[in-house]
């Protein structure tokens, strides 16, 4: 065994762009390769939006900060978002007309597979190993794997008894270990989405169990926690949290008038938080979801 010389490694890890300079800058370049990034959010916050967008941006050439490779989308939540994918194809084509001329459909470079159970996912990942060895033959030159969502696989099949919980956490570590070894061997970026559960204790008393800074873990006015608990949190390298708040804006009379709603416009304010990451500080950034995709909002504007 010989140690790796850190100087021979590229000094900067390869990142996959999110397709938005503001979000890229916020995340220090994008989604890091060779590492597992988790997106945590309640439903409707933009987990799937962001992961679909990544499926496209991974195909961008290296000089545009893409990975110049195909991507694999493993989904466990139905239905498959076909309509949204089509919309993104169009917007992606219009923003990169030269790269994706009509002869080259970006969808040809997105592989999908559904997984119904945790065991299923494990099997897919195990089979993937031999396929990834020969990228030319299998056309699986994959540099991005998205699992949407990991929580759905684990939230139904397991009972709340010690034996099942032990089996469950052992599976977490197994899946994470396989993902990490793929990531390591082929420099793959891995994105996993996760759901949230409501936080039951109001006091900050259980400060030992808490992961990251709790302050940011508010969404729609509720305090939430990422699903799957502490042992899963040990399995990911970085955790990002997407939140959504309703803010009241454009109050012109000073007092919001409930009868006359014309003066009150409600707006959804979405934020992306870094809960923990080896390379990023705890921070947050506002973003919006438009027809063309997910974009960051520059705070200065």
């Amino acid at each position: 065994m010989t140690p790796e010389n850190l100087l021979h490694r590229p000094t900067h890890t390869q990142y996959c762009t999110l397709g938005c300079p503001i979000l890229d800058a916020f995340l220090g370049g994008g989604i890091p390769c060779n590492s597992i990034t988790e997106l945590v959010a309640e439903s409707g916050c933009g987990k799937t939006q962001l992961s679909l967008q990544l499926l496209f941006t991974a195909q961008l050439p290296l000089h545009l900060n893409g990975l110049s490779a195909s991507s694999l989308y493993l989904y466990s939540e139905y239905p498959f978002p076909n309509r949204r994918l089509d919309q993104l194809v169009e917007s992606f084509r219009s923003s990169h007309p030269i790269l994706f001329a009509s002869s080259r459909d970006p969808r040809d470079y997105i592989f999908t597979r559904n997984c119904q159970t945790a065991q299923d996912l494990l099997d897919v990942l195990l089979l993937l190993e031999s396929r990834l060895e020969k990228p030319k033959e299998t056309r699986l030159d994959i540099k991005l794997i998205v699992i949407d969502s990991i929580a759905a696989l684990f939230r139904s099949d397991f009972d709340n008894n010690p034996a099942d919980l032990k089996r469950r956490s052992s599976l977490f570590f197994k899946i994470s270990s396989i993902l990490k070894s793929h990531a390591r061997r082929r420099g793959i970026a891995i994105v996993v989405t996760n759901q949230v559960v409501d936080s039951m204790d109001d006091n900050n008393g259980s400060s030992g169990v808490r992961v990251g800074n709790l302050e940011s873990m508010y969404t729609s006015g509720r305090r939430v926690l990422p699903a799957l608990g502490l042992s899963w949190a040990n399995c990911v390298n970085s955790r990002l949290f997407l939140s959504r708040h309703e803010v009241i804006e454009g109050v012109e009379n000073g007092l919001p008038d409930s009868d006359y709603s014309g003066y009150v416009s409600r707006r959804k304010r979405r934020e992306l938080h870094v809960v923990f990451a080896p390379h990023l500080p705890h921070s947050s950034c506002e973003f919006v979801i438009l027809r063309d995709g997910v974009f960051g909002v520059d705070e200065c504007l």
């Binding site: 890890t13 220090g28 990531a183 390298n237 080896p278």
Partner: peptide, 16 residues
């Protein structure tokens, strides 16, 4: 130093 990484969390840019 010897750094043994089992989790893949070591980031070169952070070390830099």
């Amino acid at each position: 130093a010897i750094y043994i990484d089992t989790e893949g969390s070591f980031m070169v840019e952070r070390a830099l």
